[in-house]
Simulated assay, not measured.
Amino acid sequence: MNISVIIPTRNAEKYIGKLIKKLQSQTISPMEIIIIDTNSKDKTKEICKEFKGINFIHINDGEFGHGKTRNQAAKVAKGDILVFMTQDAYPNNDMFLDELIKPLGKDNVVCSYGRQLPRENSSCIEVFSRKFNYGNADIIKSRQDIDKLGVKTFFFSNVCSAFVKEDFFQTGGFPSDTIMNEDMIIASKFIFNDKKTCYTSRAEVIHSHNYTYREQFKRNFDVGVVFADSKLYFGGVKSESEGIKFVKNAIKYLIQNKKIYLIPHLIVESGFKFIGYKLGYNYKKIPMKYVKKMSMHSFYFEQKKEQEALVKAI
């Protein structure tokens, strides 16, 4: 199988060189690495040009969309396997690509995502978050798992993911009009079409964040927007219960690791997440000038306004 790796970038000079080196030293070498860059102001382009086998695509400010930009790169990809990564993640070992694509085509699995391990400077709560969402057991998910797993059935991550290209385009690719979570939406499309997704725990990348309260609020505001705008994709399955489960298990983790003093921080952080999600879910009731301030991806609302105006003009 030939692999095309697709990486959206913006001001990625801090990460991109290391990521490309790690990808090019895999036991299975990608046939190409496609960098689709949104008008970086740093040395991202210059660094990419230092490597062979890089297809560098430039797009302008205002053209980026989490789904549509990845679709744009996928359309020029030559491989029969599409691997998507984010600029701030990198393989933990040289078997990453091999392990990531291994489940594809078996038992009706059409896409897979890998395990995210925390960076060395990650907070205790972030370390738990990675363990909570990315365990050490592989999971194949299908329509039959919705009653048992709930919204976790659709959990998927483009931080590191792989797709059979034929199936990717048959399902229409990523949604082009979503603020984020394009990965979960395409996973839901596959699952409701009786295909399967796979979490493969041996495909490891280093990736984590230490978000501030404000950043957690903004990120979860956008998650709320996704669930408000994309209800049909998730079959009415609610996500709040997963948040409650996370908090309960995080408290147990902090107690077990003698970090009880972090529980207040966890509660406050979870409050910012919950309020952000709820406001995002009800964003249509909020004046747009405030919506843009609360969102991590305010450009989405400008693009949406332009699209709606275009539809009215037709």
Rank of each mutant, 00 (worst) to 15 (best):
Y90V: 06
Y90P: 08
Y90Q: 04
P91C: 00
P91Y: 04
P91H: 00
P91A: 01
P91Q: 02
P91V: 00
P91G: 01
N92H: 11
N92R: 13
N92Q: 14
N92F: 14
N93V: 07
D94W: 00
D94C: 12
D94M: 07
M95D: 14
M95S: 10
M95K: 15
F96S: 10
F96H: 13
F96K: 05
F96M: 07
F96G: 01
L97P: 01
L97S: 06
L97I: 05
D98A: 12
D98W: 07
D98S: 14
D98P: 09
D98R: 15
E99C: 00
L100F: 00
L100R: 04
L100Q: 03
L100N: 01
I101W: 08
I101P: 08
I101R: 11
I101L: 08
K102G: 05
K102T: 06
K102N: 15
K102V: 04
K102P: 05
P103A: 07
P103M: 10
P103G: 08
P103Y: 02
P103D: 08
P103T: 01
L104D: 09
L104A: 12
L104F: 06
L104H: 04
G105I: 02
G105Q: 03
G105C: 04
G105V: 01
G105P: 03
G105S: 07
K106T: 02
K106H: 13
K106R: 06
K106I: 07
K106S: 10
D107I: 00
D107C: 06
D107T: 02
N108F: 00
N108I: 02
N108R: 09
N108C: 04
N108E: 11
V109H: 10
V109P: 06
V109Y: 01
V109M: 13
V109S: 15
V110T: 09
V110N: 13
C111N: 15
C111K: 14
C111G: 15
C111I: 04
C111Q: 07
S112E: 04
S112C: 06
S112K: 13
Y113I: 02
Y113W: 15
G114E: 10
G114Q: 10
G114W: 11
G114A: 09
G114T: 02
R115Y: 10
R115E: 06
Q116C: 10
Q116V: 05
Q116W: 08
L117D: 06
L117V: 13
L117S: 04
L117Q: 11
P118I: 02
P118A: 04
P118Q: 05
P118T: 07
P118H: 08
R119I: 11
R119W: 13
R119P: 03
R119Q: 09
R119H: 13
R119L: 14
R119K: 15
E120I: 11
E120R: 14
E120C: 01
E120N: 10
E120Q: 12
N121L: 02
N121G: 04
N121W: 06
S122C: 03
S122N: 01
S122D: 05
S123A: 00
C124V: 11
C124Y: 00
C124M: 13
C124A: 08
I125W: 03
I125C: 05
I125V: 13
I125D: 06
I125Y: 02
I125A: 08
E126R: 10
E126Y: 07
E126G: 02
E126V: 05
V127E: 09
V127L: 12
V127Y: 12
F128H: 06
F128N: 03
F128S: 03
R130P: 05
R130A: 08
R130W: 09
R130D: 08
R130C: 07
R130Y: 07
R130G: 05
